[in-house]
Design a protein around this nucleic acid. Structure first.
Lengths: 84, 84
DNA sequence: GCCTTTTTGTTCATATCATGTACCAGAAGA
DNA sequence: TCTTCTGGTACATGATATGAACAAAAAGGC
């Protein structure tokens, strides 16, 4: 069966702040902290803090897992990643 | 349209050694080098080197991009990742 | 077939850079 | 007041760049 934006638990995404929801797809697309900083006009350190916060709220171990999560949730699409 | 194991270029995957093809899905599932080492009974350092080699051969910047690539190629499936 | 050379694959190491962890704190706004 | 956004310090862990030893396989000439 197809994977739907997995019909939500308590809804993890609602725990994220607006800014965190902006950061999430960028991490999930494989961008590093410096790139994220440049895109959003914030320092690399601030980007880093957001990523940590996102990871903790979602209960994930690293950025790759953030990407897998975002794909499962339908937050990003493989076609948007320009990888490959 | 559905995503097919994108009908291949010169075929990047053929450039990978057998061992590298074993490492690839583990990276793509969000496992770190220590976990990969434990799974394959090699040192963390060796796992690390394989990941670097894979990344360079595929022309990618980091492990998150490796995961996105593996998903696009159909090497791994989101359902196998146990993330979330 | 036999010998040498080259290439490939697997393994581990050191050094440096990126990411993650654990905080803190000021500014702005609801 | 409380949350959010921002940037910071300090340290730990993970990832990347590079090198190198070793064995096996492949390639080629003799």
């Amino acid at each position: 069966m197809a994977q739907l934006p997995s019909t939500h638990r308590p809804n993890l995404l609602d725990q994220l702040s607006p800014r965190e929801r902006e950061i999430l797809p960028l991490v999930a697309q494989g961008k590093d902290n410096r790139e994220i900083g440049r895109i959003l006009f914030i320092s690399e350190k601030t980007a880093k803090n957001y990523v940590t916060s996102i990871r903790k709220k979602l209960g994930l171990k690293n950025r790759t897992q953030i990407a897998l999560f975002a794909l499962k949730e339908g937050i990003i699409n493989l076609d948007d990643t320009l990888v490959n």
